[in-house]
Simulated assay, not measured.
Amino acid sequence: MSIKLMDVTLRESVHVEGAKINLDAARQVVSGLSKANVDFIEIGYVSSNEGMNLQSCCPIEYIEEMACAIGAGSSSQLVLMLHPAQYQEEFLERMKHPSVGMVRLCIPLAKTDASLPVIKELKAHGIHVSANLIRASHANIQDIIVFTEKVIEAGADYIYLADSNGAMMPPAVSSLFTKLKEHSSVELGFHPHDNLGLASANAIDAIQCGVQLIDGSLYGFGKGPGNLCIETFAAILNRLDLSKKYDICELIQLSRQAYSLFINDTSENSFYDKEEGILSGLHNLNLDVLDTLDRMAQSSGLKLLDLLVILEKQTLVNRAEFALRSTELSQVG
């Protein structure tokens, strides 16, 4: 089974109070994500809300700029989000852009039937459609199965469950997706929020139950307590031998850029602590090794994270070689 990651940093920014991601910052995000081999990059909502930030309306000029930011030879594709009730025929030009690989419909359970004509309309124009059931923690399995059957019949290519409230627990995630897999003929996706600190655990359980698409964001940036941290989850996928295609160092460096550009935090050291933990957890490094590496980094005028990234890029062939190299360094340190 091939796991695919979708980054939702730019689209989620719409829900973060005070977040202002200008065009240059958006270019950096898309460029870095494409270099890191992230499969899908969601850049915002398609709407007529002109005058708001770019991510709230996604005018064609913005989409073209984001398309140009994808590196040559990259397989990354852009994604747009749409509220079905806001659909207008004039949006088709944007949604049919060759760099847009998917349009996701944001669907409350009570609005399922109203969304079906929009799914059919988009499919008639050759657009790949994902039906995203929001606030899935409020729905029971039978409601979700009925939702699934209806949107598949309308032509949906993907079905997503969104834990919009960050309230799902791993057993519930496993149960939902196990049963949903039995009734679904399309790829399944999961959009976790991290309100209870369970985004990673829920995403792992979702994958084990057959989910192929997982959403995350840089540094977990997003509504409320945030989303699944995409750089952390890329490392988890690597460690579980589920996927090694994602450039974790590129994601960490991009997260650092995003942190300085538009992610606010009360502790200036929190970024480094979190990102150091990703690499030390990935390679199972103990505190003695990390202390030695930290002293080496300080003697060279670097932060520990900088040295870990250097080691990752220069000596990493696999975890065994990295651990061996780290042990050698600790012995001479």
Rank of each mutant, 00 (worst) to 15 (best):
131 A>F: 09
196 L>C: 08
175 S>C: 12
90 E>C: 14
29 V>P: 03
250 E>Y: 00
296 M>T: 13
73 G>P: 09
127 I>Y: 00
259 Y>N: 11
153 E>G: 10
113 D>K: 12
70 I>W: 01
282 L>W: 01
46 V>N: 01
133 L>I: 11
210 G>A: 11
68 C>W: 02
186 V>G: 11
225 P>I: 08
94 R>I: 12
17 E>I: 15
274 K>E: 02
25 A>L: 06
328 E>K: 12
216 G>H: 01
169 M>Q: 13
209 C>M: 15
318 N>P: 03
276 E>L: 05
127 I>N: 00
254 L>A: 08
126 G>K: 03
266 T>F: 14
103 V>N: 02
144 I>N: 01
333 G>F: 10
44 G>A: 07
307 L>W: 02
159 I>L: 13
240 L>D: 05
294 D>A: 15
115 S>M: 05
86 Q>I: 13
304 L>Y: 00
217 S>T: 14
170 P>S: 05
104 R>Q: 12
304 L>M: 08
288 D>G: 06
219 Y>N: 13
92 L>S: 08
136 A>P: 03
248 I>N: 01
322 F>V: 09
241 D>M: 10
158 Y>V: 15
302 L>E: 10
36 A>I: 08
87 Y>N: 04
25 A>K: 04
288 D>V: 15
36 A>T: 08
145 I>K: 12
190 F>D: 03
36 A>N: 05
17 E>M: 13
20 K>R: 14
310 I>L: 11
296 M>V: 15
145 I>E: 06
54 L>S: 11
292 T>V: 15
309 V>F: 00
115 S>W: 02
205 D>A: 15
287 L>F: 07
5 L>N: 07
89 E>N: 14
159 I>N: 03
278 I>G: 01
312 E>G: 01
317 V>M: 03
131 A>E: 03
77 Q>T: 13
153 E>H: 14
107 I>Y: 02
194 D>R: 05
75 S>W: 01
137 S>V: 07
